[in-house]
Amino acid sequence: MLSEKQKKEFKERLLQMKTEAENQMEEYQQDQAKEDFENDRTGEISSIADHPGDQGTDQFERAKEQTFYEQAREKLMEVEDALKRMEEGRYGLSEKSGEPIPIERLEAMPTARYKVEEAEKINQQ
């Protein structure tokens, strides 16, 4: 079981991760607000593309930004779930077996829900 000191350290780390994810999502949303003025986003003077490759690059960049947003959103959900488990006294215990998750795993992945062996079995299914 985790000591109170360890729980406090993990909670601080989770809150920091939450802030980072929220900041990433907000940054993306601010960039999307610029969509109304596409030229501000691309730095182009004219709204007519000079080359078809420019359109492809812009499309690639938008897809990449969307991927980063989705990753930040998933991270935020995982962190919020870990904080909820902490409030309920279930943090650090496997959701599958109820056994303690090794501290090394939690240090590497503070949002871990399962022991490594259990996660591997779940991913194989």
Rank of each mutant, 00 (worst) to 15 (best):
M1L: 13
M1T: 12
M1W: 07
L2T: 11
S3I: 06
E4K: 01
E4W: 00
K5L: 09
K5F: 11
K7Q: 02
E9V: 07
F10Y: 00
K11H: 02
K11D: 03
K11Y: 04
R13G: 02
R13V: 00
R13S: 06
L14T: 01
L14F: 02
L14R: 07
L15A: 06
M17Q: 05
M17I: 03
T19E: 05
E20Q: 01
A21H: 07
A21S: 12
E22G: 00
E22R: 07
E22D: 09
N23M: 15
N23R: 13
N23S: 13
N23Q: 14
Q24F: 09
Q24P: 03
M25Y: 10
E27M: 10
E27F: 09
Y28M: 11
Y28H: 12
D31C: 15
D31M: 14
D31E: 15
A33H: 12
K34Q: 15
E35L: 10
E35M: 13
E38I: 04
E38G: 00
N39C: 02
D40F: 11
R41V: 01
T42W: 01
G43K: 05
E44D: 03
S46D: 01
S47R: 11
A49C: 10
P52F: 01
G53S: 05
G53I: 00
G53H: 00
D54L: 06
D54E: 15
D54W: 01
Q55D: 06
G56R: 08
G56P: 02
T57V: 08
Q59G: 02
Q59S: 09
E61L: 06
R62K: 09
A63V: 02
K64L: 07
K64N: 05
K64P: 00
K64V: 01
Q66V: 06
T67M: 04
Y69M: 03
A72E: 06
A72Y: 02
A72W: 02
E74P: 00
E74Y: 01
E74D: 14
L76W: 09
L76T: 06
E78K: 13
V79D: 07
E80D: 13
E80A: 01
A82D: 04
A82I: 08
L83Q: 12
K84D: 15
K84P: 08
K84N: 13
M86G: 12
M86D: 05
M86S: 10
E87C: 13
E87W: 09
E88C: 05
E88R: 12
G89Y: 12
G89M: 08
R90Y: 01
Y91V: 07
Y91N: 08
G92V: 02
G92H: 05
L93P: 03
E95S: 05
E95P: 00
E95N: 08
K96I: 08
K96A: 13
S97W: 07
E99K: 13
E99I: 02
P100V: 05
I101H: 05
P102L: 12
P102E: 08
P102S: 06
I103C: 00
E104D: 12
R105S: 13
L106A: 04
E107L: 15
A108W: 10
A108P: 10
A108R: 14
M109S: 11
M109W: 09
M109K: 11
P110N: 12
P110F: 14
A112N: 03
A112G: 04
V116Y: 11
V116N: 11
E117L: 10
E118V: 06
E118G: 07
E120K: 15
E120M: 15
E120R: 15
I122H: 08
N123Y: 11
Q124L: 10
Q125C: 10
Q125F: 10
